[in-house]
């Protein structure tokens, strides 16, 4: 140990420097957002809860092409389809495991008919384990509930896609 180190140690110079750092932070402006009352702005591109959309006439958009299920990296989507009475191909089962889903948005990118979309809803929860399976009815209901704001968000983001 040379003499400079010894002086440094005995005068506690490094400690004083550390103290000054925290003291500066003490008087700095606080930027904490009081979450439930105040919320930070969300991007229209925000990827939240998944939903299935309908056409304006109420017909479901999904044509059971299974592209979303194929592209899903977490394999969270499972689809079964059948021919409906009017001859069109529709899903009989469209389930998303919300615990597997990683909200990557690939399904939305892959969908040829803009059926599956991600809303900007992120404040939701389940109280039972079984509720993690989002059935077709639940997804359609979500789509109906947040239809306007989702369409608006997609419009805002459309020129960047």
């Amino acid at each position: 140990m040379n003499i400079i180190q010894l002086i440094k140690k005995l005068t506690l110079i490094d400690f004083i420097k550390g103290f000054i750092v925290t003291l500066k932070a003490f008087f700095r402006r606080k930027v904490t957002v009081q979450y439930p009352e105040v919320k930070t702005p969300l991007s229209p591109r925000f990827r939240g809860k998944l939903a299935l959309m309908r056409y304006d006439n109420g017909e479901e958009r999904c044509i059971a092409c299974k592209l979303c299920s194929a592209v899903c990296p977490a394999q969270a989507i499972s689809i079964e389809s059948e021919e409906r009475a009017d001859g069109s191909r529709r899903t009989t089962k469209f389930e998303i495991d919300a615990f597997k889903c990683i909200y990557c948005g690939f399904c939305e990118e892959a969908c040829p008919v803009d059926s599956i979309v991600e809303t900007d809803i992120f404040e939701y929860h389940m109280t039972e384990n079984e509720q993690r399976i989002q059935t077709k009815e639940m997804l359609l209901a979500t789509g109906d509930e947040y239809r306007e704001q989702t369409i608006e968000n997609k419009k805002k983001d459309s020129r960047y896609r």
């Binding site: 925290t22 932070a25 003490f26 700095r28 606080k30 930027v31 904490t32 009081q34």
Partner: peptide
């Protein structure tokens, strides 16, 4: 509170 302020947050409120 003090530690919160030194971490640039507001602490319990």
């Amino acid at each position: 509170k003090v530690i919160g302020y030194m971490h640039a947050r507001v602490g319990p409120n």
